[in-house]
Nucleic acid binder design. Structure first.
Lengths: 224, 224, 224, 224
DNA sequence: GGTTAATCGAGACGGTACGTCTTGTCTTTGA
DNA sequence: TCAAAGACAAGACGTACCGTCTCGATTAACC
């Protein structure tokens, strides 16, 4: 895109100030929570002027978004791939356990929850989020499921977006709404159930390995 | 509970003022959105004093919660039951279609989204919400699923909370995050998949009745 | 005047806060000068909210005006009279010496200079100043001079506004522009010189040529 | 003066940019008034960088001062002389009528008022103004009055600075404070009245009591 | 039925943060 | 090698709401 007449000139941007602002945003959101996060506070903590923030970001949500992206090291377009060992269930289990670990770490989880909530509320931010994070990630998930269809581990008639919803939806939901703890057992059961259905007879215990019983205590104290 | 020294005396409460405040809150949240909803604005619209609001509600989220409860006509404890015709899949289909209809009506949906988001963010409100709405409803869902287990329509080993997550989670998630439209086809596929699993071979078309193909176009324009 | 719907209700005004604001304004204008005087600073020093200032005054100049009025103890309409011992020159000398004393006291002089300058620059404030201070004082001066005309100490043909300008103009000018020190000697000479000019009998009309009468309508519309 | 280490090298100065800046300052001060005049605005209008202004002028007041000097065509030191036809009153009348004409022209008057006010408020600018404009002009006025003393049109005992104040003070005051219109009649009356006072023979010393001599040292260090 | 205590509309108050504006300095870039 | 362009830290502007706090003026309950 040709830089428009009014758009700030990215080349002149002070990178160290940008870093200071993103760090300040992350620190403050951890310390005081998103509701009490303020542009003034970020600027003060970063030793920056407020105008410098307003020059480059449209809202505090956008600052936090960039801060989290930088934290995940995730470079813009770079999506990567989900693991594909040929065993869909095992791969999904690994992926979701890793996700659960991240979501159980408050340093990452609390800012992430704040951002997620802000995205629900700010349509401009939502568009950005959708384009730069949500859609690439969802496509990555679809690719892994398509590959599973190719090798007959997933019904060929299944809509891949529905499949993504069935597998990742419950975990995201439980995390976001704090419906219960995100344990390894929980994600394992979700993966297995999504793939086999609730109606299916229980898998014999011996087939489960050390993942424990098919029935887990999935509800309990939140701890938070 | 004995009324404490400080608690306001419910008996003296002016009911018409209460109604005016709840109505004003609903109107304003539709007109300007939750972010721009303010206690001052509600008071002005309702022709009430700010103190009158602060006397009876701890936050604007709490006002909105009461407003939505009143809107749903739902009286406090009264839970009701999910339909139980003996056919679990048909019953769930009916329930979720009705839910989808509600969530597709912006008059109900937008304030509801606002409240849901506020609950994610305000722990005090969350506790109230959990106790007065979330838990009773979840128990109602669990009861229906338990009944299905009793008649062998659901695997006996399944954790009922996980089951609730598998069935309602994807729909709630898709609605809240605006991942795609909440069509009848979508909820039907979710119900069927949750019960049968993604791995299962496609159900023969003739068995589906007029619900259409097993594969639906579940993604597309949001419509909202 | 009936209080208009939107005007703040003076009865509810917190008098001690008002005093604190006026004091803070006076202190700050002495300490940092008018240019660096800020509404924020006044509010902070007074322990008041900014809105409280904006509720009651339209500008920092207006605050300072009220502060100086309060300082002079001058109650709104109450004008008082200049001394009238029967000796115009002696009376004027006494009055101007007292004025010079005030203007030589920086505690009064510096805020006064700031206000005077602001009046030159802010038309809204100027109107207020004109009505509440300037005009009543000028009328008081005119009254004293009129009385001198009655007893033959001032030429009957002299325009009283010109006379006021001739007597007080040089002093005000020298003070405001810091053209030199305001000593007793200076004001004495100004009084004597002005009166020698003003005391003289009218020049015969025929000697004036076409410059018109000795008495001109020297006051009137400003013309913008 | 030898250019100090820090002073910009005048030889390298871009004259057309300097002109553009002075013109922009004059235009803007007419359009928006001094209060809303900003260095940014001048730079933008002149197509110059802000730094170019800050390099050559210490403040926006200094820019305006130079702009007005350039407008009056007045070259730095060049003072000129007041007319001297031998008739003091006629000469003063002519000079003050011309002054009044200038002050009645808003194109000149409004920037001039702005500058005058700024001089009252900015000591650095005041020093410059005093040295480059005020004092040379006052000396010019003194010269004319001294010449009048020599031919007996002005009392020999009169302090020339007081005389200048008596003649020009009321006009400057009336203009600056918008006390009334600056008509030909007004300036004529001021001149006549002032001269009648100043022309009079000195009052015998013994009549003055202890107020001291008729001639006072009315000028001197400001002390501030 | 009169007393009395709480609620009500209203809105001032001390605050915090907003998003904008300007200042004066520093940095990059293009001619 | 200079000047335009403009990013930057700083901080005031005037506005919007926050949640608390008086005010009188109704109510409503209890004597």
């Amino acid at each position: 895109m040709t830089p428009s007449r009014r758009a700030p000139d990215n080349a002149r941007r002070n990178e160290s100030t940008r870093q200071a602002i993103l760090n300040a945003a992350l620190e403050l959101v951890s310390e005081v929570g998103y509701a009490k996060l303020s542009v003034e506070g970020i600027a003060a903590r970063a030793g920056a002027g407020k105008q410098t923030i307003y020059r480059w970001w449209p809202s505090k949500g956008a600052v936090l978004f960039d801060a989290l992206l930088a934290l995940s090291g995730g470079q813009e377009g770079e999506t990567g791939e989900l693991p594909d060992t040929g065993d869909l269930e095992a791969d999904l289990r690994a992926v979701l356990r890793a996700t659960a670990d991240e979501l159980n770490d408050p340093r990452y989880s609390e800012p992430m929850r704040a951002l997620t909530v802000e995205v629900l509320v700010d349509p401009d931010l939502a568009a950005d989020y959708q384009q730069r994070l949500e859609e690439p990630v969802r496509e990555m998930k679809r690719r892994r499921l398509r590959s599973a269809q190719d090798v007959g581990q997933l019904s060929p008639g299944v809509d891949l977006d529905v499949a993504v919803d069935m597998i990742w939806g419950p975990v995201r939901s439980r995390w976001l709404h704090r419906d219960g703890p995100l344990t390894e057992e929980y994600v394992d059961v979700v993966v297995r159930t999504a793939l086999q259905g609730l109606r299916a007879p229980d898998i014999p215990e011996e087939a489960l390995g050390d993942q424990g019983a098919g029935r887990v205590d999935s509800r309990g104290g939140d701890g938070g």
